[in-house]
Design a protein around this nucleic acid. Sequence first.
DNA 1: CGCATTTGACCTGCGC
DNA 2: GCGCAGGTCAAATGCG
Length: 184
Amino acid sequence: MSSYSLLSSNSSENDHPDDMSFEIMDFLTFGEHPREETSARDQPPFWEQSHVVLQENSSEASRTSGGDCSKQVSQSARASSSKGGRMKVAFKTKSELEVLDDGYKWRKYGKKMVKNSPNPRNYYRCSSDGCNVKKRVQREKEDSRYVITTYEGVHNHHALLPASADYEASGKDTLANCFQESHV
DNA sequence: CGCATTTGACCTGCGC
DNA sequence: GCGCAGGTCAAATGCG
């Protein structure tokens, strides 16, 4: 896995540092852009939505994303089709939790210590039948407050958990909610 | 008891 | 061909 690298964060501004449950620091996409293929779907995964948003508003990302979720996007997405095949999305978040609630149910299937990092990498698979989307979660070595999450593949189903509705009611933040807010 | 997590073993790809 | 590193499997374990 050396076909990409995370963009460094340029942003030092933080509108609501004390309110932050996490910040979205970097966001990258890989492989085919799913928008054309999945345009018929009424509810694409949140990162696809955000990918579109961030690409279209790349220069405005940092100021359009400081909404109710108190999240901040410091760097916009970069698309690549060099690898072809499976869609990959990677982003860095500031969070105490490693597993951010994105509305899908994940099953952990592996954990590995990686070279050049004191933090282990965790491997998750979508637990829905027939959906082989995977994600890797690893804390950044320089600053373990940041979590690097890489999604691989595209869900062939809707979110298992009604994250938006449930968490809206409880006032709890989710990645999905944040991106929804950013989208407006 | 069923399901999720843990964790060591195994597999695979890549560089030398 | 060998060794290393990353990724996955699956038995053991824990928890609700």
